[in-house]
Simulated scan of single mutants.
Amino acid sequence: MKKRIIVQGRLNDDQLAELSEHFELLEPLGSFDLSDAGVRETLSQVHGIVGASLPVTPEFLGAAPNLEVIATVSVGYDTVPVDELTRRGILLCNTPDVLTETTADTGFALIMATARRMVELATWVKAGAWEAGVGTELYGSDVHGKTLGLVGFGRIGQAVARRGALGFNMKVLYSNASPKPEVERELGAERRELDQLLSEADFVCLTVPLTEETEKLIGANELEKMKSSAILVNIARGKVVDEGALIDALERGVIKGAGLDVFENEPLGDTSPLPGMANVVALPHIGSATHETRTAMAQRAVDNMRLALIGERPLSPVNDEVLK
């Protein structure tokens, strides 16, 4: 009998065909309401789940006693209780590597757009307000030659740093748990404690994963340590920043601006002032949202699921102690 999987997300026809060649594809769950008998029936049969932003809870897992593998179509897995999966012998796989460069593109685009006030001024032009030369009140800030601070210096942080150092002659600082001597030699990067990085950098770009240690890592105290001319860019997770403190800092001119692809609550509600603030560029969490990268991420999830359920090592296991 073929093992059964459900796909909660977007795969193309070729990817679905690849999975159906090896496994029985169950209908996707219309909801995750465990009081629904149909949902519980489907979960009781499933061996693998492919998807993103799954509401994985102990109750959810309890309804899926045969579950062996979750292949998430994302690099982040902060919403998944990894320890609980490991305790139950369930393997979690993610999609690192394939979205590194695309997410770094988004980060650097936010640096450029915020510094040069591109969204604000493009809206100004569309509104028909361009009737004369641009005055000093609409000037932006240079990016080239400035100091770029990376909070987190993994794959994505290093990719952003390369764009800054090699493309824009920027001085690179990084705050990370461990030194990166090879990248220091390659880019001339210098390691700093967080407070010192915040005080020196013209652009502070966040690329850390969301953990208990990094939740609200950037709050009122940290924002006060930044230059008044500095710009904060967040391509990590929204909860890495204390959003209320950031709004206050932007309103009071504690920092110059912010480029944000992630937020505490997504989608942003109507009450959030961030989209309407002239010194903010707000994007709808599009860090990896290109045709090429999303296809590659989905394929990585497909490959992880296929390999894991046929008893081979997947490409990117998170809790690989389950394999041992």
Score class of each variant (00 low, 15 high):
7 V>D: 02
9 G>W: 03
12 N>S: 09
13 D>W: 13
13 D>N: 13
15 Q>H: 02
16 L>R: 11
20 S>G: 08
20 S>H: 04
27 E>C: 07
34 L>A: 04
39 V>M: 04
40 R>S: 11
40 R>H: 11
45 Q>C: 10
58 P>F: 01
59 E>G: 07
59 E>L: 08
60 F>H: 04
60 F>W: 08
60 F>E: 09
64 A>G: 01
70 I>D: 00
70 I>P: 00
71 A>P: 06
73 V>N: 09
73 V>D: 11
74 S>T: 07
76 G>I: 02
79 T>K: 15
80 V>D: 00
83 D>H: 02
85 L>K: 00
92 L>I: 00
99 L>M: 04
101 E>S: 13
101 E>G: 09
102 T>F: 03
104 A>E: 03
104 A>M: 01
105 D>L: 04
113 A>D: 09
121 L>N: 11
122 A>D: 14
124 W>Y: 15
125 V>F: 09
126 K>Q: 14
133 G>D: 15
133 G>N: 14
141 S>R: 13
141 S>K: 14
147 T>W: 08
149 G>W: 06
150 L>T: 10
150 L>M: 13
151 V>L: 13
156 I>N: 04
156 I>M: 06
159 A>K: 06
161 A>Q: 04
169 N>R: 12
170 M>Q: 10
174 Y>N: 08
175 S>V: 11
176 N>C: 12
180 K>R: 12
183 V>Q: 13
188 G>H: 10
189 A>Y: 03
190 E>K: 14
195 D>L: 12
196 Q>F: 11
197 L>H: 05
206 L>P: 03
208 V>G: 06
208 V>C: 10
209 P>H: 07
209 P>D: 07
213 E>S: 15
213 E>D: 12
217 L>M: 12
218 I>D: 00
222 E>P: 07
223 L>H: 00
224 E>C: 14
227 K>D: 03
227 K>E: 02
227 K>C: 03
235 I>L: 01
236 A>N: 09
236 A>C: 05
237 R>V: 00
238 G>E: 02
238 G>N: 06
239 K>P: 12
242 D>L: 06
243 E>V: 07
253 G>V: 12
256 K>D: 13
279 N>C: 07
288 S>Y: 06
298 A>K: 02
299 Q>Y: 11
300 R>N: 14
301 A>P: 04
301 A>W: 03
303 D>V: 05
305 M>Q: 05
307 L>C: 13
310 I>N: 05
310 I>C: 09
311 G>M: 01
313 R>D: 06
315 L>C: 05
316 S>A: 15
316 S>F: 10
317 P>T: 00
319 N>C: 02
320 D>C: 00
320 D>Q: 02
323 L>V: 08
324 K>M: 13
